[in-house]
Write a protein that binds this DNA or RNA. Structure first.
Lengths: 329, 329
DNA sequence: TTGAAAGCGCTAACAT
DNA sequence: ATGTTAGCGCTTTCAA
């Protein structure tokens, strides 16, 4: 593991100046074919790889997009996957920084700032708006999958209220009246999903059956909430797929048939929902579109390009699978 | 978005030299308390964050440990969480690079090499031994949660066979005889777990009941395998918790009581197993210890410290929860 | 305890 | 088409 060769080594080996080597290595025009060949030969012979740190330091840019995500969040995994694809052809790289039980958002963010990321993409951040605004004063910040009122950050999110509207409408069309919502507490998006649920119930003329059971983000939250579901309830809309899985589990254990006795609708269309044995009807957030928009927005901000609207709301869509059906006659 | 403040800006603002600022920012001794305070105040006021590229370029080191992990793997999430804690006080930072459905290990690795990571920690890599050896020729490679015979890479893993031994013994002591194993196919560790299962069954004198059903890593694999479980089977050991969840789900749906009719043991003690409504008896891999060992080994290799044994095997331990009990009389 | 000066490996101006 | 000269922002001598 000896010292790596530098550009100067290559220059010496090829008998040309550093500038020429620099040009050739970047594939820029301005060097003769003969020189080009000599340089590439030398580089190959020495096993030379440019040092990106030095390169970026000099050019004053990092071409790095920082991504802050929750490592325990299945949905974030889907988004990160999509973000990698979205970044692929842009000339920017992703720098991942995870939020874990022992590493908060501030720490995750600080790491990315040190790496001189040119913009930050934050997935469902918990940081209060004021904190985000402070960050946004330093570099472009794009918040994904959470609404933020603050004017200084960009937001790409799903029309959460609309999503619950679709869920309720789907159930109502099937004939359900007693539709309960298990919510996400204070999680990002939870308030809007509650709002959408209420509005849709009222719009369907079944506002008197509105009932919201406190839930959360995890299977466990869903399991606890499921025990509160009354016997006359025929359908449940749940904050997210993970929570819905907990609900399904408790229903199965107590012998309730799904969708025979109770229909269930999740949210996210995460990996979980697609599993054959779960086969969960759910509201899909379009991760591919959202990720593409987030990356594009970050780059636009970096380039100082004009941006028409600070917040982009992506419509969700209903994915009907096996956990919804007509109520028992 | 004006230019980020540099160390020189802070120095000017605090009325001291760049050297002092450098010392203070790194927490090195050699500056008076008064100076230290002035510098930190100035840094805070300007919102200064050191530029890691410049810092590392100058010092000739990156102090970066590259981590390659599967973003869809719940167990990897646990490991990454533990790795962050383990790295915390070492002076090294983690650089995360995810493997996703659209981004293979080679790509994930290449990114980390460009960033000049000083060592690589790979979680359950799929790369064949030859590929790992090639990598290891360039920088220290520590493989976590997978066995690799190749002499050139370090390995930190759980004694998988021992884990299944404990699972089988636990069930046998409860009185089970007809114990089935749902395996992990070609996943890292699967072969050794199969071996452990067989050995333990033989050791218990119930080798004639050995039966292995092909499974996999996911809930879905577990669900499919569960349908193959015969009516006389009283207990199942499953490749991992995620797969076990699928098994539990199918059992619940077909009305089998757990542990009344069938006992189930998982593997990993992941988040999943601990959920109150899952409450899965499982074999715990000690992520804290494994992560600490992995980080320490990487640093030892970087420092050229002598290493006694290339491979470290961490003993797993049984965590008894609610999915195991005596067989029905 | 403090400061001045010399680079790390590279790219961007400016020569030639 | 090629070479020379400055730095990027920081750490590291070395002197004071």
């Amino acid at each position: 593991m000896e010292n790596r060769p530098t550009l100067a080594d290559v220059a010496a080996h090829a008998g040309v100046s550093k500038s020429l080597v620099s040009l050739v290595m970047r594939g820029e025009p301005g060097a003769s074919a003969e020189t080009r060949r000599r340089v590439l030969d030398a580089a190959g012979a020495l096993g030379y790889h440019p040092d990106s740190r030095a390169r970026l330091l000099r050019s004053g840019r990092s071409r790095l997009l920082g991504v802050v995500f929750g490592i325990q969040h299945a949905f974030h995994a889907d988004l990160v996957t999509a973000l990698y694809s979205a970044a692929r052809e842009t000339g920017y790289e992703l720098a991942l920084s995870a939020v874990t039980p022992g590493r908060d958002e501030a720490e995750a963010t600080a790491g990315l700032l040190q790496d001189r990321c040119e913009a930050l993409i934050m997935l469902g951040p918990q940081t209060p708006a004021a904190g985000l605004a402070r960050l946004a004063a330093r570099l472009p910040v794009v918040v994904l999958a959470r609404g933020v009122r603050d004017e200084s950050v960009d937001v790409i999110r799903t029309a959460d209220a609309e999503g619950l509207h679709q869920a309720v409408d789907h159930l109502a069309v099937l004939g359900h009246r007693r539709i309960v919502h298990i919510d996400g507490g204070r999680a990002p998006g939870a308030a809007e999903r509650r709002r959408g649920y209420r509005a849709a119930m009222n719009a369907q003329g079944i506002g008197r059956h509105i009932r919201i059971i406190p839930g959360g983000l995890t299977e466990e939250d869903g399991a606890i909430a499921a025990r509160e579901i009354g016997g006359d309830t025929t359908a449940v809309t749940v904050f997210n797929d993970r929570c819905a899985t907990g609900v399904l589990d408790v229903l199965a254990r107590r012998g309730d048939k799904v969708p025979g006795d109770v229909s269930v609708v999740g949210y996210d269309d995460s990996h979980l929902a697609r599993l054959a044995h779960v086969d969960l009807t759910t509201i899909a957030q379009d991760t591919a579109v959202m990720s593409r928009l987030a990356v594009q927005r970050a780059i636009d901000r970096i380039d100082g390009a004009p941006v028409a609207q600070r917040a982009v709301v992506v419509p969700p869509h209903l994915v009907v699978r096996g956990t919804t059906g007509p109520p028992r006659a």
